[in-house]
Design a protein around this nucleic acid. Sequence first.
DNA 1: AATTAAATGATATGCTATAACATGACAAGT
DNA 2: ACTTGTCATGTTATAGCATATCATTTAATT
Lengths: 172, 172
Amino acid sequence: MTSRDANNSAKKTEALGFEQHDHRTCVKKGMSAAEARCAEEGLRFTSVRQKTLEILLQEHRALGAYEVLDRLREDGFGSQPPVAYRALEFLVSNGFVHKIEKLNAFIACANPGTTHSPAFMICRECESVAETQSMPARGALGEAAKAAGFMIEKTVVEAEGLCPSCVDKAVS
Amino acid sequence: MTSRDANNSAKKTEALGFEQHDHRTCVKKGMSAAEARCAEEGLRFTSVRQKTLEILLQEHRALGAYEVLDRLREDGFGSQPPVAYRALEFLVSNGFVHKIEKLNAFIACANPGTTHSPAFMICRECESVAETQSMPARGALGEAAKAAGFMIEKTVVEAEGLCPSCVDKAVS
DNA sequence: AATTAAATGATATGCTATAACATGACAAGT
DNA sequence: ACTTGTCATGTTATAGCATATCATTTAATT
């Protein structure tokens, strides 16, 4: 049993979607997972990068780069765009954070540590975002790629629609 | 036959997506399909909208809004961003054009007239884009949405990787 | 012709992202 | 200790993407 497995062993309310969950726990969990992985792989988990991830974990929603930048500035880090973009690029390329292409925004990974090709459900009403899994390379897309000779490296899967809470509001 | 048709009258095959095809035919086909659908549904297929679609069909690749705008300006249309964005919005919302979120760019639909939820293969090397079909709402994403109570309205599916031609280059 | 709705023109502005270059922090080898 | 290399950070400037707003024109409806 690895330490990563140990993190998942407790019961918890979880529900990384549109449901309630133990938020403080998931912030901690995200930070530890990142710290562990960086140690394992010799990545430098510097203070700007830590703070950036912490901000995204705490907000628990998709933030634009400039929103992140504002928070970094408040915490005494540099105040120019590259500061945020660099930290975000590090976090994204190592899987701690995902970019939501549809929103041009960033969100902390909901399943830190697990290998996954994520998919997102984005509410067009309240902009809440839930993460789930997808296997796009199996199925029609994979077939098409194979037929065309296209080599898939990464996939973006984002569903836009209404979250449960906004569906309810729409009905009433 | 207009003079514009005459310019293109030679039958030529150019690279579409990743394959060869009769380019003149597909431009014509795209324009007719749009014209027909607009007539059917009482949509106003105005000259800016026509020209915008024609530009995208002829280029046959993803163009940024400002590239489109430049072309429109050359053809005597307004030169301010909203001119391009409005035409693009019309075309996108009626399915004649798709937005590639990953590139913040627009590409003419490859299967005009057919109902479809498109998926794209984007070459990170040469930025070529091929369109195919996807059924993301079947499969894992659909299950997750159902479980969460999320109502999917639209999906974005984009695969990034290497097109056949760039795979070859990479090997040699 | 009068009314209304839709599309366009034009100005201004805001948001997103990166290029380019200088500085600092740290580790490895001499 | 010092040079060198590498990576991260700071800073300036600019490029690229997108929309709000308001005035004007055009087209369809009555």
